[in-house]
């Protein structure tokens, strides 16, 4: 048993060293990813604005946290988010129930967007703009109603976008016609939408896709395209996020037109 224990200890030792080495490599990669921001900030602080750094100690801890966080996130991405996204896509494809697939697509789009902090911030800001432009009454209640309405509009549009994207993968439609059609719709609606909402509408396309949604949705698309015969994961698998950043623009402008 001494012998067994010894090999086990040795084996564990090898595994631990290998894991540590992997972690070190991953951390070095994160450092490299963050280096550009640090260089830019330092350059502007010292060379352009010519000011000393405020609290250096806190700054260093902050950078360390960012590096660690990025390393853990990427690890979790490869261990958790990618595999579950793909395994669900395969399972739905095998199950062959289009209804459930579409229900899942809608829930994923709607559910991840409605609670998105960036969207909540933008919706509140948009309510201020609307109150200033005298589109709605300048009261707390009116603003809150407006902001909530906008939030649900955007979440609905993202849910719809993922559904359209999934149907496109199933049918194998070329993406460019749908996207270009969307662009034309955006241009037409820009003519009719109130001036104040246009900037917010264009921005809302960018804020809906969060750091957790993107990997999941990408894995879902690629997984679906690779488990359906005749689909190319490169051509058909990508594009879900493109829909999710186009439909909010259209829906927010529509919301602005209707409220007006």
């Amino acid at each position: 048993m001494d012998y067994d224990d010894a090999t086990e200890v040795q084996f564990t030792g090898v595994v631990v060293t290998a894991t540590l080495q992997k972690l070190l490599h991953a951390m070095l990669r994160s450092v490299r990813d963050l280096l550009p921001i640090v260089v830019v900030i330092l350059f502007f602080q010292f060379a352009v604005l010519q000011q000393p750094l405020p609290d250096i100690g806190q700054l260093l801890i902050g950078v360390l946290f960012v590096v660690l966080g990025l390393t853990f996130f990427i690890h979790g991405l490869e261990q958790g988010l990618f595999p579950i996204g793909e395994s669900m896509a395969h399972a739905f494809a095998r199950k062959g129930s289009i209804f459930w697939l579409i229900a899942f697509a809608f829930c994923l789009g709607f559910g991840t967007t409605v609670a998105e902090p960036a969207l909540i911030a933008v919706a509140a800001e948009a309510a201020n703009v609307a109150a200033n432009g005298e589109m709605i009454a300048n009261s707390q209640e009116a603003k809150e109603n407006y902001a909530n309405g906008l939030r649900f509009t955007v979440a609905l549009s993202v849910g719809l976008a993922i559904v359209i994207g999934v149907v496109r993968i199933l049918k194998g439609w070329p993406i460019q016609w749908i996207i270009i059609g969307g662009y034309i719709l955006v241009v037409i609606m820009t003519i009719f939408a109130p001036q104040e909402i246009i900037g917010i509408a264009y921005d809302s396309g960018g804020v809906t896709t969060s750091t957790i949604t993107v990997p999941l949705v990408t894995a879902l698309g690629v997984g679906l395209a690779s488990s359906i015969k005749g689909r190319n994961p490169m051509i058909d698998g990508f594009g879900l996020i493109a829909f999710a950043s186009l439909t909010p623009i259209i829906f927010v402008m529509a919301y602005g037109i209707i409220i007006q």
Partner: peptide, 25 residues
């Protein structure tokens, strides 16, 4: 198990990442 652990890593990673950004950058 591995997937759940992955979710946990994502959670920890994002928290550290956001806190670090909020502190320094």
């Amino acid at each position: 198990g591995k997937i759940l652990l992955g979710f946990l890593w994502v959670l920890i990673g994002l928290s550290f990442f956001l806190l670090g950004l909020e502190w320094c950058l």
